[in-house]
Each structure stands twice: as structure tokens, then as C-alpha cells.
Design a binder for these strands. Structure first.
Lengths: 278, 278
DNA sequence: CGGAAAATTGACTTTCTTCAAAGCTTGTGG
DNA sequence: CCACAAGCTTTGAAGAAAGTCAATTTTCCG
């Protein structure tokens, strides 16, 4: 079974009729191969930090490139885990679901970022990955990745580092969810986006938010109304320009400082206030 | 450099004088080796799910066993990453810290659970690990683990699964922090402990909480007063007995249902309420 | 026993959510 | 091209949940 048969679902089709791995025989969205060694994302994707020889090893992996249209999913919770997915362009969100139907967005994914690591644990994905706009991905068959890396200690190490980085990332999300006010959360979210956009060669101070306010709220542990209000509050503080989904950060430095000392601008050097909000 | 020189800090000693890896030449807390193959925790620790042959491979690793007293740390943020630590007995907490001093407990660790995976990403730990009682750990030198596993595809896979499991675990914590009320969070916390205690052969309905209310609060994204109030609320609902740090769950099933339908007992089958709280 | 730390409880405040209404966007079809 | 419906987004007012501050009580340990 190769990556070519992995299910990529399209919006509007009933999810329940799918069984991962048996759909998409025709694979109308397949695109020509794009080797890692010449990919414009190689500095911020899986190959980052690897030697040219190792990247050539990656090139030999039978991974495939595909289009996914807005609303389409790469996988859903419970699907058999076969591939890791690297975003080539566009944007995705990851969601986890509780038995009772509660959902939470656990991340937004820019080009070069890796999706599906949660499937390694049990052999089935624990979350879903949904395209927030028409996108392209590389599907990397995990079995093949393992085979290739078994011969290469460095590559093994790189994969381990990728997983560990995901753990660290989630640590900081927990910190955000557990100890920040609404305003701090939104600021942290925008700053994180800003940094990641910059790394990818986009403007760090101006970008389109592909996701809805509800998605942002779910990610930040807030209601969509609160997200909306917090946006207008940041705009009133002259930290942002917001026009619908388009955001411009007026002062990155100031926004960053909104993370430390909130509300009143005078408490930066307070000796013993620990800065915690709720 | 072997695991024997890894720093384990003791409470009361100044953290700043330590440099990871150069302390503890005398290693007064070293204990005799305890091979995985005969360890009573092998069903719920690193060796879980491995074949006898692979466990023998683990036995050959130069890992060391040590005591850590209450308040001692295995590592602190920024320490050079050398070892993974498996809890042998006792209990630990993990904390992450923000630049401004904000802290958050990211997990509590029971015997058989693994600590330090966040160090793989950058070669330095991103969090701290502190003993909540006098404990014992196995220190597994990561470099040696890599060497051993490079020859063994199965063992490699097992390690990857451990890391992925951590990612999944953190997903569910995010869900908790992002979408649960105080009562649900505390119930989820106790149920998680209950399950993990049971796996380890302890009573699933009765246990000592080694951590303070403040630690629980930090972990759950609540203030310690709220934790205290929520405990008394659960006691009044006859779901728990709480005597100081000793907790007895009166009805596991009922407590579990406190996660779905809260507050008013009548909303279990509501057709379109999505169940979200805050 | 005594003092320090941890936990509980109460009163009050703040923040965020909930509910509701209205304004914008976007896309579709006459 | 315009009208209109559907889906987001914004905004307001009221309510609920958790935080803050403060006073006590309990526990822990030397």
C-alpha cells in the first residue's frame, strides 16, 4: 500500500462512507514529484538541518504531492495512519474531538509544517486535518520513512527532533491556555503566526487569517464573540489594523509587550506581581 | 560521558551553581542496576509491547537507577539534554516557564512514565522535572538509546510511539484547558489519575495526591482557591471523599458522567447543544 | 509546642460567556 | 446587474464562572 491510495476527502462528501486507503483510485489531484533537495521549503520543512546526502535519501522516498481543496481533509480521527503530510502551500487546521462532540482546534499549519505525527502512537490518527484554503501537500509514507531512516542514524535523529519539537510546541500552547488572558492569547497567536510567516519569506507584519473567528476561538480556548471583541480592543490600542481577515501588526514590539504587562501600561517592573491573569 | 554524571539537584541547594553533567561525582544516590526484563514496571514502562529479545537489548543499555528526594529536580529548563528518565517509584511534576516568570505544570508522572522527551528537540530541556516525594528513577542515556535502537527497527518504532503518545496526551490536555469548566477539569484529572493508578496495580478509587492544590491548579489552568472550592463541590455532590490529600472516588461512573453533562443533570440527550462550556 | 506553609471559606470584582440583534460579504439565480 | 439568502462578524446587555483579596483553620515539621 503506497501513499497514492491514501484518502483525501473533499468537502461535501459524506465522511462516513469513507474507509481510509480505499478511496481516490483515480487521484485526480496528484501532482508531479517535487524532490526535497530542490524544494523552496527545504530550509523550514523536514529537510531542515540535514546534510545534502540525507536530503538525497529523502528524495528517494516515494512521497507524492497533491492538491487539497478548501474544506478537504487529509485524515479524520480513527483513520488508519499511513502518512505524514508536509504542507507545501496553503494552510491547514488540526482538530481533536471528545466523545461528547466537543471539538478543539489544536493547531494551524503553514507551508513546511508537518501533520499527522499523532498517528504514530496507535497506528490511527487521533485528530483531523482540514484545509483552510486550496492547498498542496506532500504525503510521506511513514513505513518508507522508517525503512530509509533505519540505515541513517542522523535522519532518525531528525525525525525524533521533529516529534520532540511538537511536544515543546504543545507545552507552550498549554501555558497559553492555562495562564493567559484573552488579550494575551490573541497577541501570542498573532506573534506566533508572524514569526512563522517571516521564516517562510512572507511579511511578518501583514497577513490573511484563513481561519474563521470561531476557529481562532477554539484554538485559543475562547468564544468567537470574545475573539472578535479582543480584536477590536487591540485595534483601539493601535496595536493592529484589522480589515476582515486581513491583519496588519502596527508595532510588533508593542504587541509582544502586551504579553507581559497587560491592561495598565504601568506594571512592567513590579517586584513581586507574578503577572498571572486568571 | 555516561548517565552517571547527570545532574540531579537536591532541594535547598542553589540551582545556579549547577552545570548539568558535572555534578554528582560521588553519586550518593546511585542504586544497583535493575534490568528492564525483570522490572515490575515492564508492562507499563518503556519495554511495554516489546519482544523479549528487544527488552534484552534495553538491558544492555548503561542506564542507572537513582534516588531523588522530595523537591529534587532531574533537570531544569536550559540544561543540556543527556537522559530520558523513567519513574521507578514516587511521583514527579513537569513545569514550563515563560520569560516573565509565569509557570505552568504540564504533567504529573507516575511510575513507568517517561520524562525528558522535550529535550530531544534542541538538545536542551525545555521544562523542569521535580520530585513530589522521595522517588526513584532510571536514567537512560539518550545517545546510547539511539545507538542501540539504530540496529533495531522495532525498538526505533517503539520510541517513536512513545513520543507520539506524548503528543496525543497533550492534545487532550489542550482540549481540557480550552473547553472544560473547573468541575470538568478536576473530574478529568482525577479520572486520568485513577486509570493510570489502576494500570500500575494501585487502587483506582483511592489515592494520595502528592501535589499541592496550587500544583493541581496550575496544571488545570485554575487558581488554587478554585481547586479547593471545586473539591468541596464534588464532595457535596457525593462523588468524592476528600481528606486532605487523600481522595476516594465514590462512584467512578458518576464522576465520568460529570464530564459530559454538568450542572443540571438534565441535558444528556439535547439534540443540538454541543455541550461546550465556557 | 510553636511557627510556617497549605488549605478552606467568604465577600466582592473581573473576565468571559450567553443570548440576541443587526451589519457585512459572498455567491447564486432571476 | 441586482436582489436575496446564508454565513460570518460585530456589538450590546445581562448573567455566570472563576479570580482576587482577606481572614481563619488545619496541617506539617522541626
Amino acid at each position: 500500500m503506497t501513499a497514492d491510495t491514501a484518502a483525501i476527502r473533499e468537502p461535501g462528501r459524506s465522511a462516513s462512507v469513507f474507509v481510509a486507503g480505499v478511496d481516490r483510485l483515480a487521484r485526480p489531484h496528484a501532482l508531479p514529484r517535487a524532490p526535497c533537495s530542490t524544494c523552496h521549503l527545504r530550509h523550514c520543512c523536514v529537510p531542515a538541518g540535514l546534510s545534502p546526502a540525507q536530503v538525497e535519501g529523502l528524495d528517494r522516498l516515494p512521497f507524492s504531492r497533491r492538491r487539497v481543496q478548501l474544506g478537504g481533509t487529509l485524515y479524520e480521527p480513527g483513520d488508519v495512519f499511513k502518512c505524514l503530510y508536509a504542507v507545501r502551500n496553503g494552510m491547514f487546521k488540526s482538530c481533536v474531538t471528545l466523545e461528547d462532540g466537543r471539538q478543539q482546534v489544536t493547531g494551524f499549519h503553514l507551508p513546511g509544517e508537518l501533520l499527522g505525527l499523532d498517528g504514530v502512537a496507535t497506528g490511527r490518527y487521533a485528530s483531523s486535518a482540514t484545509a483552510l484554503e486550496d492547498s498542496e501537500i506532500c504525503a510521506i509514507p511513514y513505513a518508507d520513512l522508517r525503512t530509509t531512516s533505519s540505515a541513517d542514524l542522523e535522519l532518525q535523529g531528525a525525525i525524533a527532533r521533529l516529534m520532540s519539537r511538537e511536544i515543546v510546541r504543545e507545552h507552550s500552547l498549554m501555558l497559553m491556555l492555562g495562564s493567559m488572558s484573552a488579550e494575551e492569547r490573541l497577541a501570542a497567536f498573532l506573534l506566533s503566526l508572524s514569526t512563522r510567516m517571516k521564516v517562510r519569506g512572507f511579511s511578518p507584519i501583514e497577513f490573511h487569517l484563513r481561519m474563521s473567528r470561531a476557529d481562532i476561538g477554539s484554538f485559543l480556548g475562547l468564544k468567537l464573540e470574545t475573539v472578535s471583541r479582543t480584536f477590536t480592543s487591540l485595534v483601539r490600542q493601535r496595536l493592529l489594523h484589522v480589515d476582515k481577515k486581513h491583519v496588519r501588526i502596527l508595532d510588533l514590539h508593542l504587541l509582544r509587550s502586551a504579553l507581559d504587562m497587560r491592561t495598565s501600561p504601568l506594571r512592567a517592573a513590579g517586584p513581586h506581581g507574578d503577572g498571572r491573569r486568571r
